[in-house]
């Protein structure tokens, strides 16, 4: 029984999550004495997957699969899993993967554990650790079906090079008209901006910034750091920033390397959604703000002074280090 991974790509290019999933699968294959096969849809260059331990890549090229479609993609992965007799199927926790996962779970008759953060603590019974209660706790989940579906949390396992080479095979799944019952009318996507989902660094602003006119410095700070911008819930509720930037328990989850919170108090619902980030920095005038209890580094100070100064210092730092 091999391990099958689905490696996500965008515009023909594999995403970082693809290499994370490959690294995790390779380590798990080591535990269970098996091999790793990847299935990639319309990805141009898949050779790099070998470097992260993938033994074989099933390459799907199909114009019909150009735009993401949960049902069709789930169908592709299911057929790949059947061909490879896969006992464990691993995907990421991206929004698209979370969209297709439950459909895939039903198709494969597989028990599904989402938001997994570590290798199984045992494989018989099969038990994995995942987050629950929006990062307020972990939960050891036992999957009891023959086929297991794992959704790996972003940034939890990391990238591990294995220095192998992957064989490539063409894979042509049979697609069904039913897979395409939902038609895309329009896509409205900002280009050239780092998204919260992909970002290594996220710069986030709260109500302490007083109004939307003050977001220039937040964007500039994000620019200098190559970061995505985000905000607290009231900021998007008041229309200062778009809803897509709202992070937290009821907004987008953030699992970045670095999360910088500016003028955000650190309410429990906000922290829950961003806690999976590795390093947290808070800039706030109030030393009693709860965020200081959750952060690694803190500056007690006025954002309107600290942020512009930080931007200047970072520009100098970047100039010296590039």
């Amino acid at each position: 029984m091999s391990i099958l991974i689905y490696t996500e790509s965008e515009g023909g290019k594999l995403k970082k999550t693809a290499f994370e999933v490959a690294s995790y699968a390779k380590a798990l294959a080591g535990q269970t004495g098996t091999t790793v096969t990847a299935v990639a849809v319309n990805a141009d260059n898949t050779a790099e997957l070998g470097k992260y331990g993938v033994d074989k890549v099933l390459k799907v090229s199909d114009e019909k699969l150009k735009g993401f479609n949960a049902r069709a993609y789930a169908d592709v992965i299911k057929q790949a899993a059947a061909q490879e007799n896969a006992g464990i199927v691993i995907i990421s926790s991206s929004a698209n993967d979370k969209y297709l996962a439950p459909v895939l779970a039903i198709n494969l008759e597989a028990g599904y554990a989402p938001n997994v953060v570590a290798l199984p603590e045992s494989t018989d019974p099969f038990r994995v650790k995942r987050t629950a209660f929006t990062n307020k706790a972990f939960n050891i989940t036992e999957i009891r079906t023959d086929v297991k579906l794992i959704g790996l949390s972003k940034n939890s396992f990391g990238l591990k090079e294995a220095n192998g080479a992957a064989a490539e095979e063409t894979f042509a799944p049979a697609l069904n008209d039913n897979d395409f019952a939902i038609g895309t009318e329009s896509v409205d996507k900002t280009t050239g901006k780092v998204t919260i989902a992909d970002a290594e660094i996220v710069v986030s602003g709260g109500r302490g910034l007083k109004g939307p006119e003050n977001w220039g410095m937040i964007e500039e700070l994000a620019d200098v750091l190559g970061a995505a911008t985000a905000c607290s819930k009231p900021v998007s509720d008041m229309g200062w920033r778009p809803h897509g930037e709202h992070v937290g328990q009821t907004g987008k989850p953030v699992a970045a390397n670095l999360y910088i919170a500016i003028g955000i108090s650190g309410a429990i619902q906000h922290l829950a959604g961003i806690n999976a980030s590795k390093v947290k920095v808070v800039i706030n005038t109030d030393p009693e703000a709860p965020f200081f209890k959750a952060a690694d580094y803190g500056v007690v100070g006025d954002a309107f002074e600290v942020v512009p100064a930080l931007i200047e210092k970072l520009k100098e730092f970047k100039a010296q280090n590039s």
Partner: peptide, 25 residues
């Protein structure tokens, strides 16, 4: 059911925040 939550854990307690003066960025 296909899965069971067999055990729970709370995250490890967080260390103290390191404070940096706004004059020493």
């Amino acid at each position: 059911s296909q899965t069971t939550a067999v055990k729970f854990e709370k995250p490890a307690p967080k260390g103290e925040v390191k404070l940096v003066s706004p004059d020493n960025l």
